[in-house]
Design a protein around this nucleic acid. Structure first.
Length: 423
RNA sequence: CGGGGUGUAGUAUAACGGUAGUACGCUGGGUUCGGGACUCAGUGGCCCGGGUUCAACUCCCGGCACCCCGACCA
């Protein structure tokens, strides 16, 4: 990526119109742009980060044997009436009409539609189990959208649905998904805690949410001080306890944000829909379902919320838009400057050819101070700084954005330096 | 959904019932080039509608948009 040709490299002005830190950092770094409250667009750098997160999740979903599909965002009203959620979801539903006055829901989640598919394609116990997922935009008419990317009216979600013949099978798969989710969040650099919560209008059973501790969180979770028990505050109050049910330890409240959730839907949607299968014993039974969600756009916001310092973003390597930010410091003397440019161009090509993702600040009209300050705001893990002085000794400076430490390296040794850094 | 607040240039802001100013950005020139450097010139603006007034960006009413606090929220 050449910064001189980039659509947006950075927003230099102040970001007033935002209270959420994650959105401030992301807008300032040129990753996203705000369209309206609760609606953001992804600029080239932001979309690269998004794609990294998406790949981590998709790879993990394939690994556990799920298939990817893509459902419609426009859903007929009738499905929602049938499930009872036209009422229970209430004003959160985004409703639209077509020219004939037909009513649709812009999907906030897809249990209704997936159950229809299951009804059609899953007929016998031989068709089970199944797991399918999609990555798609969801729409929710939230009343309160002041947390930047953490809560938006339009957001990208991975939703997986599983289908089972027996409770044991559902339980087994559910536990596998727990491990999978922890794994995904770890890869994104996020420490998550599994928390019990109420199922709301999804299920009568308790569900599990994957929570990250942060002051930016809108939810409160109670954690046991002794064991790993954790529970949603509302659920705790509903159950009216103030000690850990497992070990009797004290419960402590913390602000958290939800990274993902997993629900055992049981037979709620399959019975509403009429999604039955014929079991081994010849009996017709409702399919057992589970659903498993992760908000990808929220993850990006959460990562920004966690990984930054006073200069700007500090991306973990796994989700960084690029591994390397190559920065050419300009010289006054046109001859010397041409020499630097030649070396920097060459290094850019070499690194790119070796498969490294490089953002190359080849802009001519900026001073060293501006370039470095902007690079720090963008937060790419490694900066390679090319200057005339160092080039005389065939050296370049490599600076870690995270530690702030830099070292001088022979220009010929740069490729090997990055070979061992896992992207 | 309740309460409060704000709408002025690309961005952030100032003043004023009577010629709308500043900073950053942007365009052009000159000096710079390892931490958002300096300088000269230029560009560009009062949310919409109605009312009061000789005169409204300013006051009043309505609309729209946005912000903050609260309630709500898989």
């Amino acid at each position: 990526m050449l910064e001189s040709k980039a659509f947006v490299s950075i927003n230099r002005g102040a970001v007033e119109d935002e209270t959420a830190l994650n959105a401030q950092l992301l807008i300032r770094g040129g990753f996203v742009e705000k369209v309206m409250p609760g609606i953001y667009v992804y600029l080239p750098l932001g979309w690269r980060v998004y794609k990294k997160i998406e790949t981590i999740i998709r790879t993990e979903m394939f690994r556990i044997g799920s298939e990817e599909i893509f459902l419609s965002a426009l859903l007929p009203k009738e499905l929602w009436i049938k499930s009872g959620r036209w009422e229970s979801f209430g004003d959160i539903l985004m409703k639209v009409n077509d020219r004939d006055g037909r009513e649709y829901v812009l999907g906030p989640t897809h249990e209704e539609l997936i159950a229809e598919l299951a009804k059609k394609y899953i007929l016998t116990y031989r068709d089970l189990p199944k797991a399918i997922f999609q990555i798609q935009e969801k729409f929710r008419d939230e009343q309160e959208v002041q947390s930047g990317l953490l809560k938006t009216k339009e957001f990208i979600m991975k939703d997986l649905y599983s289908f089972h013949a027996t409770r044991q099978d559902l339980d087994f798969f559910y536990e596998e998904m727990k491990k999978s989710y922890i794994n995904i969040f770890n890869q994104c650099g996020l420490k998550s805690y599994i928390v019990e919560a109420a199922g709301g209008n999804f299920t009568d059973e308790n569900v599990h949410e994957f929570m990250l501790k942060t002051e930016a969180g809108e939810e409160t979770t109670v954690f046991c001080e002794l064991c790993d028990f954790a529970q949603n505050k509302q659920l705790k109050e509903a159950e009216g306890r103030d000690q850990c049910p497992r070990c009797g330890g004290l419960l402590k409240e913390e602000k958290t944000v939800e990274l993902g959730n997993i629900f055992k839907l049981g037979t709620k949607f399959s019975e509403n829909t009429g999604a039955y299968f014929v079991d081994r014993d010849g009996e017709k039974k409702p399919i057992l379902m589970g659903c498993y969600g992760i908000g990808l756009s929220r993850l990006m916001g959460v990562i920004a919320e966690v990984y930054h310092d006073e200069k700007g973003l500090v991306w973990p390597v796994s989700v960084a838009p690029c591994l390397i930010h190559l920065i050419k410091i300009n010289e006054t003397d046109p001859k010397i400057d041409a020499k630097i440019k030649k070396q920097a161009d060459k290094l850019y090509q070499q690194l790119t050819r070796k498969g490294f993702e490089v953002l190359y600040d080849d802009r001519v009209e900026f001073t060293s101070g501006e370039k470095i300050a902007e690079a720090d705001a963008i937060g790419i893990p490694y900066q390679i700084i090319i200057t005339a002085k160092n080039l005389q000794r065939e050296l370049v400076e490599i600076k870690s954005r995270n530690s702030g430490e830099s070292e001088l390296l022979k220009i010929s040794a740069v490729g090997n330096y990055f070979k061992n850094i896992n992207q």
